[in-house]
Design a protein around this nucleic acid. Structure first.
Lengths: 166, 166
DNA sequence: CTTGACAGGTTCTGAAATGGAACCTACTGT
DNA sequence: ACAGTAGGTTCCATTTCAGAACCTGTCAAG
C-alpha cells in the first residue's frame, strides 16, 4: 500500500493517518498547539530539516489542517495557523500525550501539565461515551459495520474477537 | 533528530511517537483492537511487507505494547496480544478514528460504528476534564511546565500563545 | 518417501524518503 | 556596500521501504 492510497481506504483511521500519520507531522502539530506559527520557529524547536518541514507544512495546508496567513507585506511573510479542522485534532494530541505521561514518563514526571481553564485544575483527558457519559476503555466497546458499508463487510472485518484479559 | 533519540525527549508526545509514531504501527494496532493476532492475518489485512511487519511487531513487543503467547507446540506457534499498556492505547486509536469520521468521511458515512456495551448505543468518544467532567477542546486548556522540569523551561516552552479564532 | 502446504519468518535488490549542508530571493538596517 | 533575516529550494550521501524470493520445521496426502 502506498501512502497516497491511504486516504481512499474504507477506514477512518487509515484516512486520518494519510494526514497526520508521520512522526514529524505530529510534532509540528504539537508545536502549533503551543502557539508556534513561523517556519524558523518550527525549525529551531524540532530539529527537522528545512526540506522535510516545508513539505509537511505544505501537506497540512493542502489537507486544510493549517492555513497560511500574512502577518506583514514587503516582503510578504506568512505564518501557519490551525484551522478549525486542525484545532479538532487536539483530542488526538491530548490522548497521545496522556498515554506517554502514563507509560513513558521518567522520575521527573510529566514534562507539561494541562490546566483546564474552566475549572482551573490540572487535568488529564478522560474519554467518555457521548450517549451515556460513562468512561470507556477498550473492553467496553464493540465494533460494527457502518450502514453505508455493509457490502464490503467481509473485507472490512473478518474478525470480531475482542481483546480480553490475559 | 533520530528516531532512536525520540524516547529521550522531554515531551510525552515525542516519547509516545517513539513507540507508535509510524503509519504501519498504528494500522497494526487498529487490527489488534479488532482481534487480529497472527502474523499472516496482519499481512493479509494490511498489505504491508513481511519485513516491515516483522520489524514493527518486534518493536511493539520490546516496548511492552504487545506480548507473544504460544497457542500451539510442535511446531511452536505464537500469537501477538495486546498487553494492558497496549489496551490503554485504545483512546488514541479512538480519537484518530473519530477525527477521520468527522473530517475525512465520504458520502457512505463512517465505515465502522462503535457500540458502547454499557448503554448499548452507537457512541462517539468525548474528551472531558478528569477533574470537573466538562468536555474540553483546544481553547479550553492552558499548558504549564511540570514540577520536575522547571529548569528546562526555556527550551521546552518558549511560547504560550494559544490558538484563537481567526 | 516424496510432494505439497502452511506458519512465521529472513535475505536480497532497486526505489523512495530523509538528513545535512549549501544556495537563492526579497527585503531591511547601518 | 555589506551583513542580517525569513522563508524557502537544490544537491548528494545515507537510511528506510516495497516487492519478491528464499529458509525452516511440521504435518498430511498420494
Amino acid at each position: 500500500m502506498r501512502w497516497e492510497e491511504l486516504d481512499q481506504e474504507p477506514c477512518s483511521l487509515a484516512r486520518t493517518l494519510a494526514v497526520v500519520g508521520d512522526r514529524w507531522t505530529l510534532l509540528i502539530l504539537r508545536d502549533c498547539f503551543l502557539g508556534v506559527r513561523r517556519f524558523d520557529e518550527f525549525e529551531k524547536r524540532l530539529g527537522v530539516t528545512r526540506h522535510v518541514l516545508a513539505d509537511r507544512l505544505k501537506k497540512l495546508v493542502s489537507h486544510g489542517v493549517l492555513k497560511k496567513m500574512p502577518y506583514q507585506q514587503k516582503p510578504l511573510r506568512e505564518e501557519y495557523r490551525l484551522t478549525e479542522k486542525g484545532l479538532d485534532l487536539h483530542t488526538v494530541v491530548l490522548s497521545l500525550v496522556s498515554w506517554g505521561d502514563r507509560h513513558m514518563a521518567d522520575e521527573r514526571g510529566s514534562p507539561v501539565v494541562h490546566v483546564h481553564k474552566g475549572c482551573g485544575r490540572a487535568m488529564r483527558p478522560l474519554t467518555v461515551c457521548s450517549e451515556c457519559g460513562e468512561p470507556v476503555g477498550a473492553r467496553d466497546i464493540r465494533v460494527e459495520i457502518g450502514d453505508g458499508w455493509k457490502a464490503l463487510e467481509e473485507s472490512l472485518l473478518p474478525l470480531h474477537r475482542l481483546p480480553q484479559k490475559g
